[in-house]
Design a protein around this nucleic acid. Structure first.
Lengths: 250, 250
DNA sequence: GTCACACTTCGGGATTGAGCGAAGTATCCT
DNA sequence: AGGATACTTCGCTCAATCCCGAAGTGTGAC
């Protein structure tokens, strides 16, 4: 049975585990576990090693397929490539403090963080993805190809795309109390690939503004470790005002 | 919220991952992943290193809490301590061959091996545990405390227990075509802690004889990688003749 | 009692790779 | 254009540890 060739017993886990078994690299991976894309310098500070040292570590992580890079100007942003990597890291983390295991709560945490979390300063997880989908479906944002433009700082896939705010979108958000003009020197819209969903969610100034507004409206509350809870008001408000059906994320 | 203190982001996975990241140790762990307890010499052959080298590796695995030891005469049997360890190993294994992922089939394999597998030469997994339960419930085996007796070679938990074949049990098994007298110089009954179930299943000569008979009867077939498939005949036969309800393991 | 076997401990050799700083390349800002 | 920033590459040092064979300890077999 050829199709069944790759099973647990076969695999050579040593190289992968060794990659995760070095303190600096482990620190990097745990910093990236929630799907953020972080710059090399940020990660160096997180790991507590020199930039040159971390550069070598990152090269090995990329070479091993655990982490992927996206260059943007003079920065290079690193993120975990696939959800399976995060799964393995979490399985190890569950094992690490040999005693204090609270598997039930951890199970709920793992699920909760995939459902709705913050990514930097905006929403991610199934809720983040559903939100972007709804904004596009509701003609608040329009997708544009952006072949000539420089790649989006916090990643864009192969081709670069842009999400532009429509006039109707601006009006709709205004009704919600979202002040779209407050865009300092930061791009209004960006997108960010979600590791748990493998699809983009909304980042950029608008992503941030929306999250803030949701918090102000009492629609969501920020829990521990980037988990985001959606209130009953949020559940109905998101569906009514933005077309984000609860079935798409809850 | 104190109860939620231990979550993925905190843990220091580096020492654990480093333990798994050495080829010889990884080979040991993968050899033990199905819950067997293997002797040091067996593991040395498996890992392809000298006995002295492996001894040091095993000491570190035990020290790290991944593996536990049970001495028996001049042998020392090693096994994986907790199901979480096997989970982490499987998560890594799923990651190891970076390309050829067949997550669906792997998911089914992981499930299948927990449902019914071989352990040495007897049944393990949910089926193995259900079988032992049924044998005890049906008065085929009787549990006895065995405080004075030497610990069972292939582990026994803290205290040692014995499973003794009853007269009615001997008759019942005889009807099934199981020749109980064929016990050479091997203990008739032993038990073996199942990592996926954390409960004992039947090992020893009787465990082996039963598996052989099940195969002869066409009740079970041995698949790849220690997975055991139960046929329709086996499903009904196990329930009818031994009281092993399908709901307890399927 | 003696031998055989299983495993551990010890000592020494060789390899790996983690670490840093300095220099090099590319990009952004003014 | 010039300088600052972000990151990589290079050269080097140093510590960790992986490995083995030989000797030591304890158990089972005859």
């Amino acid at each position: 049975m050829v199709g069944d060739a790759v099973v647990a017993g076969d695999a050579d886990i040593a190289p992968i585990a060794a990659l995760m078994g070095e303190p600096a690299r482990a620190a990097v991976l745990m910093a990236l576990i929630d799907g953020r894309a972080l710059a090399a310098s940020t990660l160096a500070a997180e790991a507590g090693v020199a930039a040159s040292t971390l550069s070598a570590h990152l090269a090995r992580l990329v070479d091993g397929g655990l982490v992927s890079v996206e260059a943007s100007g003079r920065n290079r942003y690193f993120r975990i490539t696939r959800p399976e990597v995060a799964d393995a890291l979490e399985a190890l983390a569950r094992l690490a403090p040999c005693r204090p295991i609270r598997s039930l709560r951890q199970g709920t945490h793992a699920e909760a963080i995939r459902r709705a979390r913050t990514c930097y300063d905006h929403l991610a997880g199934r809720l983040g993805v559903a939100l972007l989908d709804a904004l596009v479906a509701g003609n608040v944002l329009r997708v544009e190809e952006d072949p000539g433009g420089r790649p989006d700082p916090v990643l864009g896939a192969g081709r670069s795309q842009r999400y532009v705010l429509t006039k109707t979108g601006k009006a709709r958000l205004g009704e919600l109390g979202v002040d779209v003009e407050t865009t300092a020197r930061r791009p209004l819209t960006r997108y960010c690939l979600d590791w748990s969903e493998q699809r983009p969610h909304l980042a950029g100034a608008l992503g941030n503004t929306l999250l803030s507004r949701f918090v102000d409206l009492g629609w969501v509350t920020r829990g521990e470790r980037r988990v985001v809870q959606v209130t009953d008001a949020g559940r109905t408000g998101l569906a009514r005002d933005l077309g984000v059906a609860a079935g798409d994320w809850a």
